[in-house]
Amino acid sequence: MIVVDPNFVRLMRRLRLERGMSFRDLAKKAYFSRSYLCEIENGKKPPSLHLVKALDACLNAEGQLARLVTTVPDDRETERRSQSPSRYTACGDGTDRAVEAWQTRSPWSAQLGGPALVSASQWAHVATMLYDVFVRSRPPLMRLGPDRYANPSLRQQNLTPFAAEASTQGRAPRVECRNVSRLRPPIDVAAMLALDPDDTVVLREDTYLADGQPVQLGHTYLPTKVVGTSTLATELDLGPGGTFVALERLGYRATRIREQITTRFPTRDEAEALNLPPGVPVIVLLHASFDSDGIPFEATRYVMRSDAMAVQYVAEVDA
């Protein structure tokens, strides 16, 4: 639970005005929506810890704002979880457990004599209903295209683009690296990275979660000549900022990107990793980063749940 000192909103307003920044200016610099910042400054919503760090950096507060926000355990929530574990299991761990919890409580199931008398088609109908309630009703997590790599506050806060986007949209982000290996890249990745057929790359396999649910898989291919024996080639946990910050420490900052998007149905492994219901396709986005000399130094194939994520691009059009 987040506890906010009453002086937080007053200090935030004073600092913003002293810097001559409008909510629009602050939103663009901090990578949070203008309406959300307005609600925070008016005391209508508590700030997230990500936002507090962003405001400290953008307003040059030197930690003043962070010292006014603390987190404490919520004893009442812990007690409720211990007393009613099935309630939280139903909402947090996927459709199968949700159906199991619903089945335990359902008078319909009891009238039919228990789960043994319920047909597979009936349970499939229940799973679809719960899926519609808990997943389809939520707006998709928006991937913000080129803008996700251009915001300087990401570097100041050591945030990955995914973490910044998810936090801005009210989701709790987490990235888990499942494996790091060396291999020859797929043909399309080798072409995008301008590699010879015999060249090897470091492959980092990541799962991206929002509110504890997997929404995206990422296979990041890094030329061996780029990462050498750095932590990118050896460690699962890269610390704050992830691959994004680790590459910049090696001197590689993206000044241009290239992305191509397709859709298809998932492989069996992808469907299992993303907890996908039958019939839901995936969005496949192949991304490459280029340095100031136009040389590609990283390529990532993202596989996204089409029911949980969307891609947004905004570009200037010459008159």
Rank of each mutant, 00 (worst) to 15 (best):
P6N: 11
F8N: 05
V9R: 15
M12S: 04
R14S: 14
R16M: 02
R16I: 01
S22G: 09
K29Q: 03
S33D: 15
S33I: 06
R34S: 06
S35C: 03
L37V: 02
L37K: 06
N42F: 03
K44F: 07
L49I: 12
H50T: 11
K53F: 04
G63F: 02
Q64Y: 01
L65F: 00
R67P: 01
V69F: 01
T70Q: 08
T71D: 07
R76W: 13
R76D: 15
E79D: 09
R81Y: 08
S82M: 12
C91L: 12
G92K: 04
T95F: 02
A98F: 03
A98Q: 04
A98M: 00
Q103F: 03
T104N: 12
P107Q: 15
P107D: 15
W108E: 15
W108G: 15
Q111G: 09
Q111K: 14
G113K: 11
G114Y: 09
P115R: 15
S119N: 11
S121V: 08
W123C: 07
W123M: 09
W123L: 12
V126A: 06
V133T: 11
R136T: 13
R136Q: 11
P139I: 05
R143E: 05
D147E: 11
A150D: 05
L154K: 00
A164G: 07
P173I: 00
R174F: 01
V180Y: 12
P185R: 01
I187M: 08
A191I: 09
L193M: 08
D198E: 13
T200Q: 10
D206I: 00
D206K: 07
A210L: 00
V215N: 08
V215Q: 08
L217E: 10
H219L: 10
L222G: 09
K225V: 13
V226P: 09
L238D: 10
F244A: 00
L247C: 07
G251Y: 08
Y252S: 08
R256V: 09
R258Q: 14
P266C: 04
A271H: 06
L276Y: 12
G279M: 03
V282N: 00
V284I: 06
L286A: 06
S289F: 02
D291L: 05
D293Q: 14
I295Q: 14
A299H: 05
Y302L: 04
S306Y: 03
M309A: 04
Y313T: 03
A315I: 06
